[in-house]
Deep mutational scan, measured.
Amino acid sequence: TSEDEWQCTECKKFNSPSKRYCFRCWALRKD
């Protein structure tokens, strides 16, 4: 669900929880 998505701190895109990197800008997920 969208509620589980995380928001990239670099480009603000919301990504799948299973992705460690942002799909748009490839920044590593910040915990």
Results as ranks from 00 to 15, higher is better:
23 F>K: 04
29 R>W: 07
9 T>V: 07
18 S>Q: 08
8 C>S: 01
24 R>P: 10
21 Y>C: 11
17 P>C: 00
13 K>C: 11
9 T>R: 04
23 F>E: 15
19 K>Q: 15
14 F>P: 09
27 A>I: 03
3 E>S: 08
28 L>I: 08
23 F>V: 10
15 N>M: 05
2 S>R: 10
26 W>G: 15
12 K>F: 07
6 W>C: 06
15 N>R: 04
13 K>P: 06
15 N>A: 05
11 C>T: 02
21 Y>G: 10
1 T>I: 08
7 Q>N: 02
15 N>L: 07
2 S>P: 10
18 S>R: 05
10 E>S: 11
25 C>S: 01
2 S>F: 07
14 F>C: 05
6 W>N: 13
3 E>Y: 04
19 K>T: 14
30 K>N: 09
25 C>M: 00
20 R>V: 13
27 A>R: 06
24 R>Y: 14
8 C>R: 01
14 F>R: 07
3 E>C: 06
3 E>K: 11
4 D>W: 02
23 F>R: 04
28 L>M: 02
8 C>E: 02
31 D>I: 06
25 C>E: 02
5 E>D: 15
25 C>A: 00
13 K>F: 04
31 D>E: 11
3 E>R: 03
22 C>Q: 01
11 C>K: 03
2 S>D: 13
28 L>Q: 11
6 W>I: 06
7 Q>D: 03
13 K>G: 11
30 K>S: 13
23 F>Q: 06
10 E>K: 04
29 R>Q: 10
4 D>L: 10
23 F>S: 11
29 R>S: 06
12 K>Q: 10
7 Q>S: 02
8 C>W: 06
1 T>Y: 01
22 C>A: 00
18 S>F: 03
8 C>N: 00
8 C>P: 00
31 D>C: 03
11 C>H: 04
21 Y>W: 04
15 N>Q: 04
1 T>R: 04
20 R>T: 15
18 S>H: 13
19 K>N: 12
13 K>N: 09
24 R>D: 13
16 S>W: 05
25 C>H: 05
2 S>I: 13
24 R>A: 12
2 S>H: 09
22 C>K: 00
14 F>Y: 14
24 R>T: 10
3 E>W: 01
28 L>E: 15
31 D>K: 01
10 E>L: 06
28 L>S: 11
16 S>M: 01
23 F>P: 06
5 E>T: 11
5 E>C: 12
16 S>L: 08
19 K>G: 05
13 K>S: 12
17 P>L: 08
12 K>R: 08
5 E>S: 07
24 R>L: 10
7 Q>V: 03
10 E>Q: 12
21 Y>M: 15
24 R>E: 15
21 Y>K: 14
26 W>T: 15
6 W>G: 04
1 T>F: 03
1 T>V: 10
30 K>M: 13
21 Y>P: 12
18 S>N: 05
19 K>V: 08
21 Y>E: 14
15 N>H: 10
31 D>A: 07
19 K>H: 13
29 R>G: 15
26 W>N: 15
15 N>P: 05
23 F>W: 13
14 F>G: 03
8 C>L: 01
2 S>T: 13
15 N>D: 10
28 L>V: 14
28 L>N: 09
22 C>R: 01
29 R>M: 08
27 A>D: 07
12 K>G: 15
16 S>F: 13
10 E>G: 06
11 C>Q: 01
7 Q>A: 05
4 D>Y: 04
20 R>W: 12
25 C>Y: 00
6 W>E: 02
5 E>M: 12
11 C>A: 02
7 Q>T: 02
1 T>M: 09
20 R>Q: 15
7 Q>P: 02
9 T>H: 10
17 P>V: 06
18 S>L: 04
11 C>D: 01
28 L>R: 05
27 A>H: 08
13 K>R: 07
24 R>V: 01
3 E>I: 08
28 L>W: 11
14 F>L: 09
18 S>C: 10
17 P>D: 14
18 S>T: 11
18 S>P: 08
22 C>Y: 00
25 C>W: 00
24 R>C: 09
4 D>T: 10
26 W>Y: 13
16 S>I: 00
19 K>D: 14
22 C>H: 01
22 C>T: 00
30 K>I: 09
27 A>E: 02
26 W>K: 15
11 C>W: 01
29 R>V: 11
1 T>H: 00
19 K>S: 13
28 L>T: 14
5 E>N: 12
